[in-house]
Write a protein that binds this DNA or RNA. Structure first.
Lengths: 149, 149
DNA sequence: TGCAATTGGTTACAAGTGAAACTATAAGTT
DNA sequence: AACTTATAGTTTCACTTGTAACCAATTGCA
């Protein structure tokens, strides 16, 4: 006959706890990528993300950047201000709505983008290199499912 | 005959970019869990993580908390200070090494732990409920592989 | 034993961040 | 048109966070 031992408190095992593992993994990867541009270009992660949005969707407003990036409104405002200040983003005013900004990368902005983007992709490849094709495929599908709802 | 258009800049597609997706997913999940304790117990995420470590490994030093949690030394120091201040952690000094702290949850700390831990686990379950058993198994293995090296 | 190097932990300062208040423009209502 | 409401974006203030400097106890070693 076995005696079942009921633990008094049932602590979480942090290192097996999915949200924690996701957090560690995500931070590790993001910081490795950020290291590619933070020192070299004096660029924050928020600024870099704004730049990637502007690279894909030129001439958008700050609002659209917020919508597309899940970043905070204030964070975007500040990132844009710094990017404009540094001459990396050109900022105009929308013709039909004077509240709206019209943002796009400047030449200098594109130059940075074109240097950083391949390095970012290289990090993604390095990460995926740890997986075989089957695992990579599963990961894609699983993330899709986890991210809905 | 098809004309191949070579994009001038090859921008990242943020929403398919693995590091970005991990970041969004991780933040969404972590914030949902944090919502369980931040307002109710005035507890930061760092403090909660320290508490989970102390729940599993009573009588450890701050150094051990750092080692086990991948958190920053200063962050842990501050979290512990607040937890002690709030009467949730008891802090002693190691017998053989007077630099070392000896930390453990107080009664009040355990009470909070025992209330929050099941809610945290419920979030994990809710997340995994989006996956079937096969996907869950793959996810575990994949995270293991991604997190080594 | 004495002194430099190391380690556990805290403090100080600067930079980053979020919530709320604010400005300016636009849209809707009567 | 006059007035309320909503939206785009910025600023302010309090709080958090990260880096580096720091203090005190311990270890290594000449």
């Amino acid at each position: 006959m076995s005696i079942e031992i009921v633990p008094a408190h049932a602590p979480l095992e942090l290192e097996r706890f999915l949200p924690y593992r996701l957090s560690i993994l995500s931070n590790t990867v993001s910081q490795a990528i950020a290291a590619e541009y933070q020192d070299k270009f004096d660029l924050s992660m928020t600024e870099w993300r704004v730049m990637t949005i502007l690279a894909r969707f030129p001439e958008v407003s700050a609002r659209e950047v917020v919508d597309r990036s899940r970043m905070d409104k204030v964070a975007v405002s500040r990132a844009v201000a710094r990017l404009v200040e540094a001459g990396r983003v050109d900022k105009g005013i929308h013709d039909d709505d004077k509240r709206r900004s019209v943002l796009k990368l400047s030449e200098a902005g594109w130059a940075i983008h074109d240097e950083v983007a391949p390095r970012a992709r290289a990090h993604e490849r390095a990460l995926l290199a740890k997986l075989d094709d089957e695992e990579t495929a599963w990961l894609g599908r699983i993330l899709d499912k986890l991210m809905v709802g």
